[in-house]
Design a binder for these strands. Structure first.
Lengths: 199, 199
DNA sequence: CCATCTACTTACCGAACGGTAGGTAGCAGC
DNA sequence: GCTGCTACCTACCGTTCGGTAAGTAGATGG
Protein backbone atom coordinates (compact mmCIF):
# COMPACT_ATOMS: atom_id res chain seq x y z
CA UNK A 1 0.00 0.00 0.00
CA UNK A 2 1.35 3.40 -1.04
CA UNK A 3 1.75 5.61 2.00
CA UNK A 4 0.37 8.62 0.19
CA UNK A 5 -2.74 6.97 -1.16
CA UNK A 6 -5.96 7.98 0.44
CA UNK A 7 -7.50 4.99 2.10
CA UNK A 8 -10.93 5.10 3.60
CA UNK A 9 -10.48 2.21 6.02
CA UNK A 10 -7.14 3.48 7.26
CA UNK A 11 -8.55 6.97 7.76
CA UNK A 12 -11.57 5.63 9.57
CA UNK A 13 -9.35 3.69 11.93
CA UNK A 14 -7.25 6.80 12.59
CA UNK A 15 -10.31 8.93 13.25
CA UNK A 16 -11.84 6.48 15.69
CA UNK A 17 -8.51 5.86 17.36
CA UNK A 18 -8.00 9.59 17.86
CA UNK A 19 -11.32 9.99 19.56
CA UNK A 20 -10.79 7.00 21.80
CA UNK A 21 -7.16 7.68 22.68
CA UNK A 22 -8.06 11.27 23.52
CA UNK A 23 -10.93 10.15 25.71
CA UNK A 24 -9.44 7.09 27.38
CA UNK A 25 -5.71 7.34 26.95
CA UNK A 26 -3.35 4.85 25.42
CA UNK A 27 -3.76 2.05 27.93
CA UNK A 28 -7.44 2.67 28.44
CA UNK A 29 -8.18 2.22 24.75
CA UNK A 30 -8.11 -1.35 23.53
CA UNK A 31 -7.64 -2.50 20.00
CA UNK A 32 -11.05 -4.11 20.30
CA UNK A 33 -12.60 -0.72 21.16
CA UNK A 34 -11.04 0.80 18.07
CA UNK A 35 -12.08 -1.92 15.67
CA UNK A 36 -15.59 -1.94 17.11
CA UNK A 37 -15.84 1.79 16.50
CA UNK A 38 -14.35 1.55 13.01
CA UNK A 39 -16.51 -1.47 12.05
CA UNK A 40 -13.54 -3.55 10.97
CA UNK A 41 -11.74 -6.51 12.48
CA UNK A 42 -8.45 -6.63 14.33
CA UNK A 43 -6.44 -8.17 11.50
CA UNK A 44 -7.80 -5.41 9.24
CA UNK A 45 -6.36 -2.88 11.65
CA UNK A 46 -3.07 -4.78 11.73
CA UNK A 47 -3.05 -4.74 7.94
CA UNK A 48 -2.58 -0.95 8.11
CA UNK A 49 -0.70 -0.49 11.37
CA UNK A 50 2.00 -2.87 12.62
CA UNK A 51 1.07 -2.34 16.24
CA UNK A 52 -0.99 -0.28 18.64
CA UNK A 53 2.06 1.84 19.32
CA UNK A 54 2.51 2.69 15.64
CA UNK A 55 -1.13 3.68 15.41
CA UNK A 56 -0.67 6.03 18.33
CA UNK A 57 2.57 7.38 16.91
CA UNK A 58 0.83 8.17 13.62
CA UNK A 59 -1.67 10.33 15.46
CA UNK A 60 0.98 11.96 17.59
CA UNK A 61 3.02 12.83 14.52
CA UNK A 62 -0.03 14.36 12.92
CA UNK A 63 -0.63 16.49 16.00
CA UNK A 64 2.94 17.73 16.22
CA UNK A 65 3.45 18.32 12.51
CA UNK A 66 0.19 20.18 12.08
CA UNK A 67 0.93 22.34 15.08
CA UNK A 68 4.39 23.18 13.85
CA UNK A 69 3.10 24.04 10.40
CA UNK A 70 0.56 26.42 11.92
CA UNK A 71 3.21 28.03 14.08
CA UNK A 72 5.45 28.68 11.08
CA UNK A 73 2.63 30.11 9.02
CA UNK A 74 1.59 32.29 11.95
CA UNK A 75 5.09 33.62 12.46
CA UNK A 76 5.30 34.58 8.80
CA UNK A 77 2.09 36.56 9.15
CA UNK A 78 3.37 38.77 11.94
CA UNK A 79 4.86 42.10 10.98
CA UNK A 80 7.06 42.71 13.99
CA UNK A 81 8.12 40.69 17.02
CA UNK A 82 5.02 41.52 18.99
CA UNK A 83 2.81 40.64 16.05
CA UNK A 84 4.64 37.40 15.40
CA UNK A 85 4.30 36.32 19.01
CA UNK A 86 0.64 37.17 18.99
CA UNK A 87 0.08 35.23 15.79
CA UNK A 88 1.90 32.19 17.10
CA UNK A 89 -0.03 32.16 20.35
CA UNK A 90 -3.28 32.63 18.53
CA UNK A 91 -2.40 29.78 16.17
CA UNK A 92 -1.99 27.53 19.19
CA UNK A 93 -5.33 28.59 20.54
CA UNK A 94 -7.02 28.08 17.19
CA UNK A 95 -5.47 24.64 16.97
CA UNK A 96 -6.81 23.84 20.41
CA UNK A 97 -10.23 24.94 19.30
CA UNK A 98 -10.26 22.96 16.06
CA UNK A 99 -8.26 19.91 17.14
CA UNK A 100 -8.79 19.54 20.83
CA UNK A 101 -8.28 15.80 20.77
CA UNK A 102 -4.91 16.06 19.07
CA UNK A 103 -3.78 18.67 21.57
CA UNK A 104 -4.95 16.49 24.45
CA UNK A 105 -2.95 13.61 23.04
CA UNK A 106 0.18 15.75 22.92
CA UNK A 107 -0.02 16.83 26.55
CA UNK A 108 -1.09 13.46 27.87
CA UNK A 109 1.88 11.89 26.15
CA UNK A 110 4.35 14.52 27.29
CA UNK A 111 3.46 14.12 30.94
CA UNK A 112 2.76 10.43 31.00
CA UNK A 113 5.02 8.33 33.16
CA UNK A 114 7.96 7.01 31.24
CA UNK A 115 6.88 3.39 31.37
CA UNK A 116 3.28 4.12 30.51
CA UNK A 117 3.84 4.50 26.82
CA UNK A 118 5.57 1.95 24.63
CA UNK A 119 9.28 2.61 24.43
CA UNK A 120 9.16 3.32 20.74
CA UNK A 121 6.89 6.36 20.98
CA UNK A 122 8.77 9.49 19.93
CA UNK A 123 7.76 13.03 20.63
CA UNK A 124 10.50 14.93 22.38
CA UNK A 125 12.24 16.26 19.31
CA UNK A 126 8.97 17.56 17.95
CA UNK A 127 8.11 19.27 21.23
CA UNK A 128 11.54 20.84 21.19
CA UNK A 129 11.04 22.03 17.62
CA UNK A 130 8.05 24.14 18.63
CA UNK A 131 9.91 25.65 21.52
CA UNK A 132 12.94 26.38 19.38
CA UNK A 133 10.87 28.38 16.92
CA UNK A 134 9.80 30.72 19.71
CA UNK A 135 13.26 30.86 21.27
CA UNK A 136 14.82 31.81 17.95
CA UNK A 137 12.29 34.58 17.57
CA UNK A 138 13.14 35.82 21.05
CA UNK A 139 16.81 35.66 20.23
CA UNK A 140 16.37 37.80 17.14
CA UNK A 141 14.36 40.24 19.25
CA UNK A 142 17.25 40.49 21.68
CA UNK A 143 19.71 41.04 18.86
CA UNK A 144 17.52 43.79 17.45
CA UNK A 145 17.51 45.42 20.86
CA UNK A 146 13.79 45.00 21.40
CA UNK A 147 14.09 42.51 24.26
CA UNK A 148 16.22 42.62 27.38
CA UNK A 149 19.50 40.83 27.36
CA UNK A 150 19.51 40.51 31.14
CA UNK A 151 17.63 37.24 30.63
CA UNK A 152 18.74 34.37 28.44
CA UNK A 153 16.68 33.72 25.32
CA UNK A 154 15.84 30.35 26.84
CA UNK A 155 14.40 31.99 29.94
CA UNK A 156 12.35 34.53 28.00
CA UNK A 157 11.08 31.85 25.64
CA UNK A 158 10.04 29.73 28.59
CA UNK A 159 8.30 32.78 29.98
CA UNK A 160 5.98 33.35 27.08
CA UNK A 161 5.67 29.66 26.25
CA UNK A 162 4.65 28.99 29.84
CA UNK A 163 2.06 31.75 29.78
CA UNK A 164 0.57 30.33 26.62
CA UNK A 165 0.68 26.79 27.93
CA UNK A 166 -1.20 27.54 31.09
CA UNK A 167 -4.15 28.75 29.06
CA UNK A 168 -4.12 25.66 26.87
CA UNK A 169 -3.69 23.38 29.83
CA UNK A 170 -6.41 25.06 31.85
CA UNK A 171 -8.82 24.61 28.96
CA UNK A 172 -7.85 20.95 28.59
CA UNK A 173 -8.17 20.16 32.28
CA UNK A 174 -11.23 22.25 33.02
CA UNK A 175 -13.05 23.31 29.88
CA UNK A 176 -14.76 26.63 30.17
CA UNK A 177 -12.81 29.58 28.86
CA UNK A 178 -11.42 29.02 25.42
CA UNK A 179 -8.37 31.21 24.88
CA UNK A 180 -8.77 33.57 21.92
CA UNK A 181 -6.87 36.19 19.98
CA UNK A 182 -7.63 38.59 22.78
CA UNK A 183 -5.96 36.18 25.21
CA UNK A 184 -2.94 36.00 22.92
CA UNK A 185 -2.70 39.78 22.78
CA UNK A 186 -2.91 40.09 26.54
CA UNK A 187 -0.25 37.46 27.07
CA UNK A 188 2.14 39.21 24.69
CA UNK A 189 1.40 42.50 26.38
CA UNK A 190 2.01 41.08 29.83
CA UNK A 191 5.17 39.40 28.60
CA UNK A 192 6.57 42.58 27.10
CA UNK A 193 5.48 45.14 29.65
CA UNK A 194 5.28 43.18 32.90
CA UNK A 195 2.72 43.21 35.66
CA UNK A 196 4.14 45.84 37.94
CA UNK A 197 2.23 49.07 38.11
CA UNK A 198 4.10 52.13 36.92
CA UNK A 199 4.75 54.81 39.52
CA UNK B 1 -7.09 0.04 61.69
CA UNK B 2 -6.62 3.59 62.99
CA UNK B 3 -5.88 5.96 60.11
CA UNK B 4 -3.27 7.83 62.12
CA UNK B 5 -1.37 4.83 63.34
CA UNK B 6 1.98 4.26 61.76
CA UNK B 7 1.95 0.99 59.94
CA UNK B 8 5.06 -0.44 58.40
CA UNK B 9 3.33 -2.63 55.81
CA UNK B 10 0.99 0.12 54.69
CA UNK B 11 3.87 2.57 54.38
CA UNK B 12 5.93 0.08 52.45
CA UNK B 13 3.09 -0.47 50.01
CA UNK B 14 2.69 3.30 49.56
CA UNK B 15 6.40 3.79 48.98
CA UNK B 16 6.63 1.04 46.40
CA UNK B 17 3.42 2.15 44.74
CA UNK B 18 4.70 5.71 44.46
CA UNK B 19 7.84 4.61 42.72
CA UNK B 20 6.02 2.32 40.34
CA UNK B 21 3.14 4.65 39.55
CA UNK B 22 5.61 7.47 38.89
CA UNK B 23 7.66 5.26 36.61
CA UNK B 24 4.95 3.33 34.79
CA UNK B 25 1.75 5.28 35.31
CA UNK B 26 -1.52 4.06 36.74
CA UNK B 27 -2.41 1.54 34.06
CA UNK B 28 1.14 0.42 33.55
CA UNK B 29 1.54 -0.53 37.18
CA UNK B 30 -0.19 -3.72 38.20
CA UNK B 31 -1.19 -4.70 41.67
CA UNK B 32 1.08 -7.71 41.24
CA UNK B 33 4.04 -5.39 40.55
CA UNK B 34 3.33 -3.49 43.73
CA UNK B 35 2.93 -6.50 45.95
CA UNK B 36 6.06 -8.08 44.48
CA UNK B 37 8.01 -4.92 45.30
CA UNK B 38 6.54 -4.66 48.78
CA UNK B 39 7.03 -8.37 49.53
CA UNK B 40 3.41 -8.89 50.52
CA UNK B 41 0.44 -10.57 48.91
CA UNK B 42 -2.50 -9.07 47.10
CA UNK B 43 -5.01 -9.66 49.89
CA UNK B 44 -2.57 -7.95 52.25
CA UNK B 45 -2.62 -4.92 50.01
CA UNK B 46 -6.40 -5.06 49.86
CA UNK B 47 -6.46 -5.21 53.62
CA UNK B 48 -5.11 -1.65 53.66
CA UNK B 49 -6.52 -0.18 50.49
CA UNK B 50 -10.00 -0.96 49.17
CA UNK B 51 -8.88 -0.72 45.56
CA UNK B 52 -6.07 0.25 43.24
CA UNK B 53 -7.78 3.59 42.74
CA UNK B 54 -7.84 4.35 46.45
CA UNK B 55 -4.15 3.53 46.69
CA UNK B 56 -3.44 5.98 43.90
CA UNK B 57 -5.71 8.60 45.44
CA UNK B 58 -3.85 8.31 48.75
CA UNK B 59 -0.60 9.18 46.97
CA UNK B 60 -2.19 11.97 44.98
CA UNK B 61 -3.65 13.50 48.13
CA UNK B 62 -0.26 13.36 49.76
CA UNK B 63 1.30 15.16 46.80
CA UNK B 64 -1.31 17.90 46.67
CA UNK B 65 -1.54 18.45 50.42
CA UNK B 66 2.19 18.62 50.91
CA UNK B 67 2.57 21.03 48.04
CA UNK B 68 -0.16 23.28 49.37
CA UNK B 69 1.34 23.27 52.83
CA UNK B 70 4.71 24.30 51.42
CA UNK B 71 3.11 27.06 49.39
CA UNK B 72 1.38 28.48 52.43
CA UNK B 73 4.51 28.36 54.56
CA UNK B 74 6.47 29.99 51.73
CA UNK B 75 3.98 32.79 51.33
CA UNK B 76 4.17 33.52 55.05
CA UNK B 77 7.94 33.86 54.74
CA UNK B 78 7.84 36.54 52.08
CA UNK B 79 8.04 40.15 53.25
CA UNK B 80 6.39 41.83 50.31
CA UNK B 81 4.56 40.71 47.19
CA UNK B 82 7.72 40.12 45.24
CA UNK B 83 9.23 38.17 48.11
CA UNK B 84 6.13 36.09 48.57
CA UNK B 85 5.97 35.18 44.93
CA UNK B 86 9.61 34.24 44.94
CA UNK B 87 9.20 32.10 48.04
CA UNK B 88 6.20 30.30 46.58
CA UNK B 89 7.96 29.57 43.32
CA UNK B 90 11.03 28.39 45.12
CA UNK B 91 8.91 26.14 47.33
CA UNK B 92 7.59 24.49 44.20
CA UNK B 93 11.04 23.96 42.85
CA UNK B 94 12.27 22.56 46.14
CA UNK B 95 9.32 20.20 46.22
CA UNK B 96 10.19 19.07 42.70
CA UNK B 97 13.72 18.42 43.84
CA UNK B 98 12.81 16.48 46.95
CA UNK B 99 9.66 14.73 45.75
CA UNK B 100 10.00 14.38 42.04
CA UNK B 101 7.85 11.28 41.87
CA UNK B 102 4.94 12.96 43.64
CA UNK B 103 5.15 15.92 41.30
CA UNK B 104 5.24 13.61 38.30
CA UNK B 105 2.12 11.91 39.57
CA UNK B 106 0.32 15.23 39.84
CA UNK B 107 1.05 16.28 36.28
CA UNK B 108 0.45 12.87 34.75
CA UNK B 109 -2.93 12.76 36.45
CA UNK B 110 -3.91 16.29 35.49
CA UNK B 111 -3.24 15.73 31.80
CA UNK B 112 -4.32 12.16 31.53
CA UNK B 113 -7.24 11.44 29.28
CA UNK B 114 -10.49 11.54 31.14
CA UNK B 115 -11.21 7.84 30.82
CA UNK B 116 -7.70 6.77 31.68
CA UNK B 117 -8.07 7.17 35.39
CA UNK B 118 -10.80 5.60 37.46
CA UNK B 119 -13.79 7.88 37.76
CA UNK B 120 -13.40 8.24 41.49
CA UNK B 121 -9.98 9.89 41.36
CA UNK B 122 -10.23 13.49 42.61
CA UNK B 123 -7.67 16.19 42.07
CA UNK B 124 -9.23 19.22 40.46
CA UNK B 125 -10.22 21.03 43.64
CA UNK B 126 -6.71 20.60 45.03
CA UNK B 127 -5.13 21.93 41.83
CA UNK B 128 -7.49 24.86 42.00
CA UNK B 129 -6.54 25.50 45.63
CA UNK B 130 -2.90 26.07 44.69
CA UNK B 131 -3.84 28.42 41.91
CA UNK B 132 -6.25 30.33 44.13
CA UNK B 133 -3.51 31.03 46.66
CA UNK B 134 -1.47 32.77 44.00
CA UNK B 135 -4.44 34.55 42.50
CA UNK B 136 -5.45 35.94 45.88
CA UNK B 137 -1.93 37.21 46.37
CA UNK B 138 -2.08 38.90 42.99
CA UNK B 139 -5.42 40.40 43.83
CA UNK B 140 -4.10 41.92 47.03
CA UNK B 141 -1.16 43.27 45.02
CA UNK B 142 -3.59 44.93 42.65
CA UNK B 143 -5.56 46.41 45.50
CA UNK B 144 -2.39 47.77 47.05
CA UNK B 145 -1.58 49.43 43.75
CA UNK B 146 1.54 47.37 43.13
CA UNK B 147 0.18 45.45 40.14
CA UNK B 148 -1.63 46.69 37.06
CA UNK B 149 -5.36 46.57 37.02
CA UNK B 150 -5.49 46.51 33.23
CA UNK B 151 -5.30 42.73 33.54
CA UNK B 152 -7.61 40.58 35.60
CA UNK B 153 -6.14 38.88 38.65
CA UNK B 154 -6.91 35.58 36.94
CA UNK B 155 -4.83 36.54 33.92
CA UNK B 156 -1.87 37.74 35.97
CA UNK B 157 -2.01 34.65 38.16
CA UNK B 158 -2.00 32.48 35.07
CA UNK B 159 0.96 34.45 33.83
CA UNK B 160 3.24 33.73 36.74
CA UNK B 161 1.81 30.28 37.36
CA UNK B 162 2.46 29.41 33.73
CA UNK B 163 6.03 30.67 33.93
CA UNK B 164 6.67 28.56 36.97
CA UNK B 165 4.96 25.54 35.47
CA UNK B 166 7.02 25.52 32.32
CA UNK B 167 10.19 25.12 34.36
CA UNK B 168 8.70 22.29 36.39
CA UNK B 169 7.31 20.62 33.31
CA UNK B 170 10.52 20.97 31.36
CA UNK B 171 12.41 19.31 34.19
CA UNK B 172 9.89 16.48 34.36
CA UNK B 173 9.84 15.85 30.63
CA UNK B 174 13.52 16.34 29.94
CA UNK B 175 15.58 16.28 33.11
CA UNK B 176 18.64 18.46 32.99
CA UNK B 177 18.22 21.88 34.50
CA UNK B 178 16.69 21.82 37.91
CA UNK B 179 15.00 25.14 38.63
CA UNK B 180 16.38 26.89 41.69
CA UNK B 181 15.87 29.99 43.80
CA UNK B 182 17.66 31.92 41.10
CA UNK B 183 15.11 30.68 38.59
CA UNK B 184 12.33 31.78 40.92
CA UNK B 185 13.84 35.23 41.26
CA UNK B 186 14.22 35.61 37.52
CA UNK B 187 10.67 34.54 36.89
CA UNK B 188 9.30 37.05 39.38
CA UNK B 189 11.49 39.72 37.85
CA UNK B 190 10.32 38.93 34.35
CA UNK B 191 6.75 38.80 35.53
CA UNK B 192 6.92 42.21 37.23
CA UNK B 193 9.09 44.11 34.78
CA UNK B 194 8.44 42.46 31.45
CA UNK B 195 10.75 41.45 28.66
CA UNK B 196 10.72 44.56 26.50
CA UNK B 197 13.91 46.56 26.49
CA UNK B 198 13.61 50.07 27.82
CA UNK B 199 14.29 52.85 25.34
C1' DC C 1 -8.94 -20.37 -16.47
C1' DC C 2 -5.10 -19.59 -13.29
C1' DA C 3 -2.03 -16.95 -10.50
C1' DT C 4 -1.24 -13.10 -7.82
C1' DC C 5 -2.31 -9.45 -5.01
C1' DT C 6 -5.09 -6.45 -1.97
C1' DA C 7 -8.03 -5.91 1.62
C1' DC C 8 -10.09 -7.83 4.45
C1' DT C 9 -12.36 -12.13 7.50
C1' DT C 10 -13.22 -15.88 11.53
C1' DA C 11 -11.37 -18.04 15.22
C1' DC C 12 -7.96 -18.35 18.29
C1' DC C 13 -3.60 -17.80 21.48
C1' DG C 14 -1.17 -17.19 25.94
C1' DA C 15 -0.53 -13.79 29.20
C1' DA C 16 -2.01 -10.52 32.35
C1' DC C 17 -5.34 -8.03 34.96
C1' DG C 18 -8.00 -6.36 39.47
C1' DG C 19 -10.09 -8.46 42.75
C1' DT C 20 -12.01 -12.47 45.97
C1' DA C 21 -13.05 -16.87 48.77
C1' DG C 22 -11.56 -19.17 52.32
C1' DG C 23 -8.24 -19.65 55.56
C1' DT C 24 -4.63 -19.07 59.50
C1' DA C 25 -1.00 -17.46 62.85
C1' DG C 26 -0.44 -14.72 66.57
C1' DC C 27 -2.01 -11.86 70.14
C1' DA C 28 -4.94 -9.98 73.81
C1' DG C 29 -8.62 -10.27 76.94
C1' DC C 30 -11.68 -12.88 79.76
C1' DG D 1 -8.70 -22.68 77.24
C1' DC D 2 -11.80 -20.02 74.33
C1' DT D 3 -13.13 -16.10 71.59
C1' DG D 4 -12.41 -12.36 68.75
C1' DC D 5 -9.55 -9.53 66.23
C1' DT D 6 -5.61 -8.08 63.33
C1' DA D 7 -2.70 -8.83 59.75
C1' DC D 8 -1.73 -11.32 56.76
C1' DC D 9 -1.74 -15.96 53.49
C1' DT D 10 -2.69 -19.61 49.20
C1' DA D 11 -5.26 -20.43 45.47
C1' DC D 12 -8.38 -18.94 42.46
C1' DC D 13 -11.93 -16.24 39.40
C1' DG D 14 -13.74 -14.34 35.01
C1' DT D 15 -12.47 -11.02 31.91
C1' DT D 16 -9.64 -8.55 28.89
C1' DC D 17 -5.61 -7.72 26.38
C1' DG D 18 -2.42 -7.26 21.95
C1' DG D 19 -1.51 -9.89 18.54
C1' DT D 20 -1.68 -14.14 15.07
C1' DA D 21 -2.83 -18.33 12.04
C1' DA D 22 -5.29 -19.54 8.41
C1' DG D 23 -8.31 -18.29 5.17
C1' DT D 24 -11.18 -15.85 1.35
C1' DA D 25 -13.59 -12.54 -1.84
C1' DG D 26 -12.77 -9.73 -5.45
C1' DA D 27 -10.02 -7.62 -8.95
C1' DT D 28 -6.49 -7.80 -12.41
C1' DG D 29 -3.41 -9.53 -15.85
C1' DG D 30 -1.67 -13.07 -18.77
Amino acid sequence: MEPNVVNATRDKILAIALRLFADRGYAGTSIQDIVDGARVTKPALYYYFPSKAELYQALLNRAHDERFRLMQAASARGKDLSGKLEEILNAHFAFLKSHRELVGLVYATAFAARGEMPKEIRYLDKCQRNFDLIRDLIRSGQRAGELKRAFTAEHLARGIFGMMNIHVQAELVQPGQKPSRKTARQIVQLFLEGAAART
